[in-house]
Design a protein around this nucleic acid. Sequence first.
DNA 1: TAGATTGTTAATCGATTAACAATC
DNA 2: TAGATTGTTAATCGATTAACAATC
Lengths: 210, 210
Amino acid sequence: MAKIKIQAAPSIRRMPSYLHIIKQARNCGCEYISGTVIAEELQLEPIQVRKDLAITGVIGKPKKGYPVKDLIKAVELFLGWNTHKKAVIVGAGNLGTALCGYTGFREHGLEICAAFDTDCKKIGTKIHGIDIYDKNDIADYIKKCKIKIAILTLPSEYAQEAADILVKSGIKAIWNFTNLKITVPENVAVQKEDLSSGYAMLGVMINASS
Amino acid sequence: MAKIKIQAAPSIRRMPSYLHIIKQARNCGCEYISGTVIAEELQLEPIQVRKDLAITGVIGKPKKGYPVKDLIKAVELFLGWNTHKKAVIVGAGNLGTALCGYTGFREHGLEICAAFDTDCKKIGTKIHGIDIYDKNDIADYIKKCKIKIAILTLPSEYAQEAADILVKSGIKAIWNFTNLKITVPENVAVQKEDLSSGYAMLGVMINASS
DNA sequence: TAGATTGTTAATCGATTAACAATC
DNA sequence: TAGATTGTTAATCGATTAACAATC
């Protein structure tokens, strides 16, 4: 299998905000929504919205815009948000706990089935209704429940070690919230989420404005 | 004041990972570190590391690399991580709580002074040692303590309303964790952090790999 | 019809990568 | 000296923006 290389990442990243607006339109009973309207709402250029939406394959109608229902379906299909997916949380610390409590993922097809930790005090308890198990049992659990997605929220120093176990157990996608780059086989997708890079942007902006 | 428009955002976003590596080198007693070594560690191209580091103004030595101590100072200066900054958390829910407990910011100059919420049960208590106050008192607090940074972790529907109050109270930078784009005056910096865009990337990668 | 909006093709812009002389 | 590494200049690549014909 070829290395997963995603084209048009900036466009993909904008999709959720489009989806949000389009769903609002649907809830207002609109049948069509124009790229112009979406752009205005998000303070973007209309041409950028049109280019992005073209990726999903939906055909708009001149003068009216895009058919709302079709567009929602197409964006969700494109993002894979229409299919049910099971995930585990690896590391039930601050961030892991917060993600367990975040209900937004479920609306987009992601079910968090379990969390794993090394802390005896946490093991056996629940956070936000999600069971916390012993991290040593993670391989068995992933195999048994055929989990394909893991959310890495443990201390960075254990990230690679955990990733190796996850991959060996059959995980195909890792959402990496640690600040280390992990090494995985070609056929495993990794999405790195990096708070410190956002904080860096904030810092530079503050520098620039003062 | 001109609209804050940041050049070279991708370079800025990579700086924290460089800094991490460089600090490791310092802790190992290295006096110099080459762009080649940093690149290898992060699986980047050496030329990209050199170009990025050039932004900070540090001059490297052919054959040796960059002076570690100077480089750390320069990157921290560039990111504004060398100066002490005070911030408040607006919305002590899941994410707000997680950020209160995250100690990493303090190392980079950010002190979270207080959190604000509307929930009577939370007001008056502490999370991770940080006081939670009534959201109605936020304007007074910001003015009194001369806070310039606010971290927005409340439900999206209150984001704009809160932002307006923050700006009026003197906040100059907002780290926006809601999924709405907020509108602020030109001289206020906003850094939007968007989990759903990362989740979108993950979804597309999973689609692509199966 | 007139006019708003789409989708295509071309132009611009910025970021990444390549090539290579300078240098310690 | 030889060779690794820097920093500069140029080339490539991809994303954004502009222009405009097509169309409902």
